[in-house]
């Protein structure tokens, strides 16, 4: 089942057309990375999903219900974490979660139970300071707690890691990864390593449309470049191998970098067999021989002009 379905979304601010027919589908129980350059329209898309912006055209369905601008009905399914969440800084974390729970209409006991549980989950269990003394990372973690208080089926995070240092980033990613199976997580980012770390689905937004979307493993297969990396015992050996006449073909490109060659060609199996037969005929045992997996980064560079 799809928890979020976006169809043909158009949105422009003045003459700036941000979204030009965005279609996106998020399956339930996935961790979904929503990738795009800064200003690609990620935040705009999220605000439309939350009913905070009115799209020029197109529909958004959350859990099978249509989102309408200005209404908060569908938001009961959604927990939202903005990129820099702001709280009432005179409050303490429990107090703030209490306010959120009351507004969401939870019972007193449920709020108490949930707050303690969530603060524990995000690692703020023993923090009773005023929020004004919180670091950015702590605010981000409290942000996740407040988003989850209603046990939403969908958690939307806008650039949850971009303002944080490496340690803070890892903590947030670990928390999000831990939610897998309980809640569907959609998070936008321009940091590809974050997506590789925890997502199983990814969508790349460029020019107001999705240029790529699907399970990461499938994308890797689809965008596999037919390339190999070979490491030799010495740079001389590498240079000698690269100069072999069998490799001087227009369909094969060879890049030498010290003792390592990167060989790319249009035909994967043929080139692999060619390389192996060359190893044996030349009497060379390479130190390392591997088929290169496309990284998300190379994929991103390929699909985004």
């Amino acid at each position: 089942m799809n928890i979020l379905e976006i169809k043909d979304l158009h949105m422009s601010f003045g003459s700036n057309e941000v979204l030009r027919g965005l279609d996106m589908v998020v399956p339930e129980n996935s961790v979904f990375g929503f990738v795009g350059k800064n200003g690609a329209g990620k935040t705009t898309t999220m605000k439309i999903i939350l009913g905070l912006l009115k799209p020029d055209q197109g529909t958004v369905m959350v859990c099978g219900e249509k989102v309408t601008y200005g209404s908060s009905r569908t938001n009961r399914h959604i927990g939202f974490l903005p990129d820099v969440p702001e709280f009432y800084s005179y409050m303490r974390p429990l107090e703030y979660l209490h306010l959120c729970g009351e507004i969401a209409g939870l019972s007193r006991e449920r709020i108490k139970e949930r707050s303690v549980e969530l603060l524990e989950l995000v690692g703020l269990g023993d923090v009773n300071r005023r929020i004004s003394w919180f670091s950015r990372g702590m605010k981000q973690r409290l942000g996740i707690a407040q988003a989850l208080i209603t046990e939403p089926r969908l958690l939307i995070c806008d650039e949850p890691t971009s303002a944080l240092d490496p340690i803070g980033r890892r903590q947030i990613l670990d928390i999000l990864a831990a939610l897998k199976g309980r809640t569907t997580v959609v998070f936008s980012t321009h940091i590809l390593s974050d997506v590789e770390r925890i997502c199983d689905q990814v969508a790349i937004l460029d020019g107001g449309k999705l240029v790529v979307s699907g399970p990461i493993s499938e994308l890797r297969r689809r965008y596999r470049r037919n390339s190999f990396s070979v490491r030799f015992s010495s740079p001389e050996e590498a240079a000698r191998f690269a100069a072999l006449s069998a490799l001087q073909q227009p369909t094969i490109s060879v890049i030498v970098d010290g003792d390592t060659l990167t060989v790319a060609s249009a035909d994967q199996n043929g080139t692999g067999q060619l390389l192996i037969s060359l190893f044996s005929s030349e009497g060379i045992v390479p130190e390392k021989f591997e088929v290169l997996e496309p990284t998300l980064e190379s994929l991103f560079e390929e699909v985004v002009q």
């Binding site: 959604i78 939202f80 903005p82 702001e86 507004i103």
Partner: peptide, 15 residues
């Protein structure tokens, strides 16, 4: 200006 309302509005607080 600080954005403190967004979180409560998305939780269903009517404007």
């Amino acid at each position: 200006s600080r954005g403190t309302l967004v979180l409560l509005l998305t939780k269903g607080l009517p404007r």
